[in-house]
């Protein structure tokens, strides 16, 4: 016991020991509950059982009807992240009847108690105006990253499946367009 880390911290500085113990306890609680509250992280990456998928979706953006945005042309993963993830979330909102999936998730978990956090809804969800402003933002950000003046955008969804050897495209359909006002 006397050789343990926390005991030695306790001997040195009780306040520091309380802080470290509280951090440890909250992190353990978060993990037991499976809920992440920053900075008490849950490191459950890739632990969820993956369900077999018939078709995978890939998002493709074309600038000015000529330049396809290939996120892999950008060497940093953060750039790729910002080019791909917000667009994917925008599509998720569209696919969810224009309701933020976080709202649907919370409503399914809380049922009638959802009303109690209703006043916070603007803090955790995207509403119509944000959704409408998204493509304007995406055009601005693409211009920032690509240095190409963006006049129009075409966003397509590619549906593809895997064979034993490769990825094969099944369908391509347009899901959003944007023109410079």
């Amino acid at each position: 016991m006397k050789g343990t880390f926390l005991y030695q911290v306790w001997q040195h500085n009780r306040k520091l020991c309380y802080i470290l113990t509280a951090f440890t306890m909250l992190t353990v609680c978060g993990n037991l509950l499976g809920d992440e509250v920053t900075p008490f992280f849950v490191w459950g990456m890739y632990s969820e059982k993956e369900k077999p998928v018939q078709q995978y979706e890939i998002l493709k953006t074309t600038i000015n009807d000529s330049t396809v945005v290939n996120v892999y042309d950008y060497y940093t993963t953060d750039t790729r992240f910002y080019l791909y993830s917000p667009l994917a979330y925008y599509k998720k909102i569209e696919d969810n009847n224009n309701v933020d999936p976080t709202v649907s998730f919370l409503q399914s978990k809380l049922h009638q108690h959802y009303d109690k956090i209703d006043f916070l809804e603007r803090s955790f969800s995207n509403t119509g105006p944000q959704q409408q402003a998204f493509l304007d933002w995406y055009a601005r950000y693409l211009q920032q990253v690509t240095n190409i003046p963006v006049h129009s955008l075409r966003m397509e969804v590619i549906k593809a499946h895997y064979t034993d050897q490769n990825l094969v495209t099944d369908t391509v359909h347009l899901f959003a367009t944007w023109e410079k006002p």
Partner: peptide
């Protein structure tokens, strides 16, 4: 570039 869509999720 003044982003608009946020993702606070349940944190």
């Amino acid at each position: 570039q003044k982003p608009v869509i946020k993702f606070p999720y349940v944190d």
